[in-house]
């Protein structure tokens, strides 16, 4: 079956939309009716057929539009993609991982022919065909990490391991939940997480770092993180905060269902072979409250989670100012009935 790609925008007129199929496969992040930080890590890939967990790098109906949006963001601000000099090898590792995975998992969309280091890559949805020499940067129009992540949904951080810590020494970041790669590049695991409230005290980051350092070459994992965003905007960066900030105050009881989006990050972790670096892809999925509440289980649960959440977290995730309106809206979908365990919708 050939995939249909949406013609849609993530800024300006915001024509982004989810098909019924996309809503049903949305990675809803709450497996119970309450939320607190946890190191909720599972093996990846692996999950029900059709879910975004099924393959290494999920490609969906938003692929082409997301890549166009990335192009716009990079043209305005090239510092969204940075790689410190020692990270080029990790970039090649990432390029190999993605090209091999996509060609295997989506043969109708991507093809990779390899003859030693002579590689031939075909990306049909984006109309790209490229012959290049693996590990020779002069044969690509840009660095290997930039090349492949201009063709892959989600943000990417490449983490260098040294001194018992992980250092964010490269990344492609254009669909982030309000953090700046340009500012954070070069930081270690605790430094770049410093602005997150509470978690350090709870020991979450110590456990998470210990886990990440032990990820081996043949293992890969995932976890879900989430926040809320007004309008389906991928690029909620601090750099452009003064431009999109006013939109956060444009929510009304009438439009909240369509304008308020749940933003879910599917975070995955891979140990890269040649560089021994860790790849940390952060894939962003957006769905508005109205679409989510169409699944009765999700409507009930989302209401309970957002109603009862720790106020510090609501503040940190940036929706405290709209929380009352959101909870009021969602209350109409919550009849008090119990919800089934797990994240997937009923029926």
């Amino acid at each position: 079956m050939t995939m249909q790609f949406n013609d849609e925008t993530f800024r300006g007129d915001y024509t982004y939309h989810n098909s019924q199929k996309a809503i049903r496969r949305f990675p809803f992040p709450f497996d119970q009716d309450a939320y607190m930080y946890s190191v909720n890590i599972e093996q990846h890939p692996g999950g029900p057929e059709g879910s975004p967990f099924e393959v290494m790098f999920d490609v969906d109906e938003h692929y082409v539009a997301e890549m166009k949006d990335r192009e716009i963001t990079l043209a305005e601000d090239p510092l969204r993609c940075q790689s410190l000099p020692h990270m080029e090898l990790a970039g090649w590792d990432l390029l190999e991982l993605i090209m091999v995975s996509k060609a295997r998992d989506y043969p109708e969309l991507f093809t990779l022919h390899r003859d030693g280091n002579d590689w031939h890559w075909i990306n049909k949805p984006l109309g790209i065909e490229k012959k290049f020499t693996f590990l020779d940067p002069t044969t690509l129009p840009c660095g290997p990490m930039e090349y492949i992540t201009r063709q892959t949904q989600g943000d990417f951080a490449l983490l260098h391991e040294r001194d018992g810590n992980l250092w964010m020494d490269a990344g492609m970041v254009t669909s982030q939940a309000d953090w700046s790669l340009d500012f954070d590049v070069g930081m270690n695991f605790f430094e770049w997480h410093a602005p997150v409230p509470k978690a350090r005290k709870m020991g979450v980051f110590d456990k998470a770092l210990k886990f990440l350092l032990s990820v081996g070459q043949d293992q890969s994992y995932r976890r879900l993180n989430w926040t809320l965003t007004v309008n389906p905007r991928l690029d909620t960066s601090p750099e452009t905060y003064h431009k999109w900030g006013p939109e956060k105050r444009s929510v009304t009881p009438e439009n909240v269902g369509r304008k308020q989006f749940l933003r879910v990050e599917l975070q995955t972790f891979f140990r890269l072979p040649r560089s021994n670096a860790l790849a940390f892809p952060i894939r962003c999925y957006l769905a508005n409250l109205e679409d989510l509440a169409g699944q009765p289980k999700w409507g009930r649960r989302l209401h309970r989670v957002l109603r009862d959440i720790d106020p510090t977290l609501a503040e940190y995730k940036g929706f405290a100012v709209n929380q009352e309106m959101i909870v009021d809206y969602l209350s109409q979908f919550d009849d008090g009935a119990p919800t089934s365990p797990g994240i997937f919708p009923d029926g």
Binding site: S180, G245, R249
Partner: peptide, 17 residues
């Protein structure tokens, strides 16, 4: 929030919203 690479603190628009 401080970047050792740049040697600076971060400043963000106070009235963005």
């Amino acid at each position: 929030h401080f970047s050792r690479r740049l040697g600076v603190f971060q400043a963000v628009c106070v009235d963005a919203e």
